[in-house]
């Protein structure tokens, strides 16, 4: 300790050099852009900010974003818990393959996901054409955007829940069964409380990912203003059209949502520990 905190020249110099480098790095990468967006947004006070966010297009973009995000979170929660239980509690052929496939969305670019979905569900594919003939429109509409968002956020709930289920073991569930609880009662009263913190963590992560998704949604939505435009697409569109106040206001709103999610995640993590 004495050596590290002592007055010996080189170590003190390297310590301060390291600090300056790290702080400068964070300053240019993170702090400056975020602060500038905030400053640009609130340059003329809160009024213009709220005005920019309450236009018809902005409100619609909020609505689309939340609808898509809520569906994606709901589907990923149900699917994620189910898959985690399948992976931890059951043995079946192909389990290792499923385990590997779950992580695929982390590696595949969202744009590729969007294109792949168009290939399957687009009007000119046989399956998508058949669906469209029966009045079900996937691509350029909400279901397609939900699918794209579900895909990119697929592993988040599963990966949060699996280690906790493993650590918990199945004895508590078996004990509940011998005490007369059926499968659903055991799941609701023993399994869910056991994975509660991890599940909440996974859900918040999934929500943050869903709100911020751009690439896959951009491809499958068709970017129809006032119809399939999410908040991220709205930011991009306004920026391209030189409507910077609207773009910055929406961007700030997204950033604020992200910061709140991050705080909730940290709180949940602390609670889980």
């Amino acid at each position: 300790m004495a050596e590290r905190s002592g007055v010996t020249g080189p170590s003190v110099v390297s310590k301060y050099v390291l600090r300056v480098v790290v702080l400068a790095y964070l300053l240019f990468l993170l702090v400056l852009p975020v602060v500038l967006i905030g400053w640009k947004t609130f340059q003329h006070g809160l009024g213009p900010f709220f005005d920019a966010l309450t236009t018809h297009e902005a409100l619609h973009a909020f609505q689309v974003t939340f609808i898509v995000a809520l569906w994606a979170v709901a589907l990923n929660t149900v699917f994620g818990v189910g898959t985690a239980i399948l992976l931890v509690r059951h043995r079946f052929p192909g389990k290792r393959i499923l385990n590997a496939v779950i992580d695929l969305p982390l590696a595949v670019s969202p744009v590729v996901v969007g294109l792949a979905l168009i290939l399957v569900y687009g009007r000119f594919s046989s399956f998508g054409g058949w669906l469209e003939d029966h009045g079900i429109k996937i691509i350029f509409s909400t279901p397609g955007m939900v699918l794209a968002t579900v895909f990119v956020a697929l592993p988040l709930v599963v990966r949060a829940v699996v280690p906790v289920l493993e650590e918990m073991g199945d004895e508590q569930e078996q004990a509940a069964q011998t005490l007369g609880a059926g499968r659903w009662q055991t799941f609701r009263r023993i399994t869910v409380p056991g994975i509660r913190s991890a599940l909440a963590y996974g859900i918040v992560l999934c929500l943050a990912r869903a709100l911020g998704e751009y690439g896959a949604v951009a491809v499958v939505s068709g970017r129809l203003v006032g119809q399939t435009q999410t908040l991220t697409l709205y930011v991009e569109e306004r920026f391209q059209n030189f409507e910077q106040p609207a773009a910055f206001a929406a961007a700030t709103a997204l950033a604020l949502i992200a910061i709140v999610s991050l705080l909730v995640i940290k709180l949940l993590q602390r609670k889980a520990d």
Binding site: E171, Q172, Q174, A175, A176, Q177, T178, L179, G180, A181, G182, R189, I190, P193, G194, R196
Partner: peptide, 27 residues
């Protein structure tokens, strides 16, 4: 198992961790 009316005690207790002692016994 839930229809056999047996009581089972596990080597590692299998206590319901999120419940109090009262709620464990009342389950």
């Amino acid at each position: 198992p839930q229809r056999r009316n047996v009581g089972f005690v596990f080597q590692h207790y299998a206590a319901f961790k999120h419940m109090t002692v009262f709620d464990n016994i009342a389950f």
